[in-house]
Amino acid sequence: MEETKYVAYLRVSTQKQGYSGLGLEAQKEIIHNYLHDTIPISEYVEVESGRKSDRPKLKEALSQCRKEGATLIVAKLDRLARSVSFLSSLLESDVDIVFCDFPQANKMVLHIISAISQYEAELTAARTKAALQAKKARGFKLGNPEHLLDKHEKAIQNSIKTCKARADNNPNNRRAIALLRTLVKEEHTYQEMAEILNREGFVSSQGCSFTKSTVYKLIKRYNLLEDYG
């Protein structure tokens, strides 16, 4: 039988791609773990906000799927769309789609999930609007332009610090670093280090297998090469 070909579609928002829990690297790792030894023939990255429906990279990915007879693969369902109408029209297309977090989902299940997601998003927006109106009615001034930019930048910096602290304190990272110190001293390659970590049962901070990319990031983050430079 001919091996299934895949086209990967990854989506991030402009504000969150640098520090979100499901950034580009995490999506790539989820797809890599799902496909094992199979490598997507192409990879399309969409950078945009979550509510827009004009996704040029998705259209390009679907077009290549049709030309190559390939399947579109997405890390998680919510990376693709939360709009019922958009997802419904997509699922009615002639391209097969697989979601790594829900590979057994059929079209009916996906319609239900997207409907619930959209309802939750609309409910959250309505609650936020009502809360802001109530606050304004009590005399609070909303959206002071003199402080919004500073607060936004501080929020980003605090989020980055929190993510770094969480990574530093992660027990999986701590165990891996202990072994990596020895492997670096023994001058193993990144690929060899990843294979050793996986063989010994180590997992990354997200519970995934190690790749040479994740090994490189840990070594760079903790300056392990400088210890033996």
Score class of each variant (00 low, 15 high):
M1I: 04
E2C: 00
K5W: 03
V7T: 02
L10S: 06
R11M: 03
R11S: 04
R11P: 01
V12Q: 09
S13K: 05
T14F: 12
Q15P: 00
K16S: 12
Y19L: 09
S20W: 05
S20A: 09
S20M: 01
G23E: 02
E25T: 11
K28L: 11
K28A: 06
E29I: 08
I31Q: 08
I31V: 14
Y34V: 04
D37R: 13
P40N: 06
E46Q: 13
S49T: 14
R51V: 13
D54P: 00
D54M: 06
P56F: 11
L58Q: 05
L58M: 09
L58F: 11
A61C: 05
Q64A: 01
E68I: 03
E68K: 10
G69L: 01
A70P: 02
T71L: 04
T71G: 02
L72E: 07
K76C: 05
D78Q: 06
R79N: 07
R79K: 10
R82T: 04
S85H: 15
F86L: 10
L87T: 15
L90M: 08
L91F: 11
D96A: 14
D96I: 02
F99H: 01
D101Y: 05
D101G: 02
F102G: 00
P103T: 01
A105G: 03
M108I: 10
L110I: 06
S114C: 11
Q118I: 07
E120H: 05
A121M: 11
A125Q: 12
T128Q: 12
T128G: 06
L132Y: 07
A134D: 07
K135F: 00
N144E: 06
D150L: 13
K151R: 11
I156N: 02
I156K: 14
Q157A: 13
Q157F: 12
N158C: 02
S159Y: 05
T162W: 05
R166H: 13
D168G: 02
N169A: 12
N169F: 03
N173P: 00
A176N: 06
L179I: 08
L180E: 08
L180V: 06
R181I: 09
T182W: 14
V184D: 02
V184S: 04
E186M: 10
H188D: 00
T189S: 15
Y190M: 10
E192I: 08
E192T: 13
M193F: 03
L197A: 09
N198H: 06
R199G: 09
E200P: 00
G201S: 03
S205L: 03
S205D: 07
L218D: 02
I219F: 03
R221Y: 03
R221H: 07
L224E: 03
L225G: 02
L225F: 11
E226D: 08
